[in-house]
Amino acid sequence: MMLWSVIPEEQILEHFDKQQYNWMEAEVNGVKMLVEPVAEQPGYGRVIRLLCPDPSHYLNPNYQPGQTVCLAPSTMQ
């Protein structure tokens, strides 16, 4: 990481190692991703990043970081 600032690095990164994230791995429609559960919508998660090696999934706007996806298994056939 490169950081250009007049503020000392120790002050900027002071609590960096103490941050807590509520992220979890999930598979949605066969696409493995890192999501953050949405408190206001149980069963849904906000995409943090994709963990799948298939490049076509990165082009799908439904899986872009920040999008909300359903984490519950689909019951529709």
Score class of each variant (00 low, 15 high):
Met1Asn: 08
Met1Thr: 11
Met2His: 15
Met2Ser: 15
Met2Leu: 13
Ser5Phe: 00
Ser5Trp: 00
Val6Gly: 06
Ile7Tyr: 04
Pro8Ile: 01
Pro8Gly: 11
Pro8Trp: 02
Pro8Thr: 07
Glu9His: 07
Glu9Gly: 00
Glu9Asn: 07
Glu10Ala: 15
Gln11Lys: 08
Gln11Ile: 06
Gln11Leu: 09
Ile12His: 01
Ile12Met: 02
Ile12Val: 10
Ile12Glu: 00
Leu13His: 14
Glu14Met: 06
Glu14Trp: 01
Glu14Lys: 15
Glu14Ser: 04
His15Arg: 10
Phe16Gly: 02
Phe16Gln: 12
Asp17Arg: 14
Asp17Val: 11
Lys18Val: 05
Gln19Thr: 07
Gln19Lys: 09
Gln19Pro: 01
Gln20Trp: 11
Gln20Ile: 11
Tyr21Gly: 10
Asn22Ser: 15
Asn22Arg: 08
Trp23Phe: 14
Trp23Lys: 14
Met24Gln: 15
Glu25Met: 07
Ala26Glu: 11
Ala26Trp: 00
Ala26Thr: 12
Ala26Lys: 09
Ala26Gln: 13
Glu27Ser: 10
Glu27Ile: 01
Glu27Met: 03
Val28His: 05
Val28Pro: 10
Asn29Phe: 03
Asn29Gln: 12
Asn29Leu: 08
Val31Met: 12
Lys32Ser: 05
Lys32Trp: 01
Lys32Tyr: 00
Lys32Gly: 00
Lys32Asp: 03
Met33Leu: 14
Met33Tyr: 02
Met33Ala: 07
Met33Ser: 01
Met33Cys: 12
Met33Trp: 01
Leu34Thr: 02
Leu34Asp: 07
Val35Pro: 05
Val35Ala: 04
Pro37Asn: 08
Pro37Thr: 02
Pro37Trp: 04
Val38Ile: 13
Val38Ser: 10
Ala39Asp: 06
Ala39Cys: 06
Glu40Phe: 00
Pro42Gly: 08
Gly43Thr: 02
Gly43Cys: 03
Tyr44Leu: 04
Tyr44Gly: 09
Tyr44Ile: 01
Gly45Leu: 02
Arg46Asn: 04
Ile48Leu: 10
Ile48Tyr: 11
Leu50Lys: 07
Leu50Trp: 00
Leu50Thr: 01
Leu51Lys: 05
Leu51Asn: 09
Leu51Ser: 07
Leu51His: 07
Leu51Asp: 05
Cys52Leu: 08
Cys52Val: 09
Cys52His: 15
Pro53Leu: 11
Pro53Asp: 14
Ser56Tyr: 06
Ser56Ile: 11
Ser56Phe: 04
Ser56Leu: 06
Ser56His: 12
Ser56Lys: 08
His57Lys: 14
His57Ile: 05
Tyr58Pro: 02
Tyr58Gln: 15
Tyr58Val: 06
Tyr58Gly: 15
Leu59Arg: 15
Leu59Lys: 13
Asn60Gly: 03
Pro61Asp: 03
Asn62Ile: 07
Tyr63Thr: 03
Tyr63Gln: 03
Tyr63Pro: 01
Tyr63Val: 04
Gln64Pro: 03
Gln64Met: 08
Gln64Leu: 05
Pro65Glu: 11
Pro65Gly: 13
Pro65Arg: 10
Gln67Pro: 05
Gln67Cys: 12
Thr68Asp: 05
Val69Ile: 11
Val69Cys: 03
Val69Gly: 02
Leu71Asn: 15
Leu71Ala: 14
Leu71His: 14
Pro73Asn: 10
Ser74Ile: 04
Thr75Ile: 09
Thr75Ala: 09
Gln77Asp: 12
Gln77Ser: 10
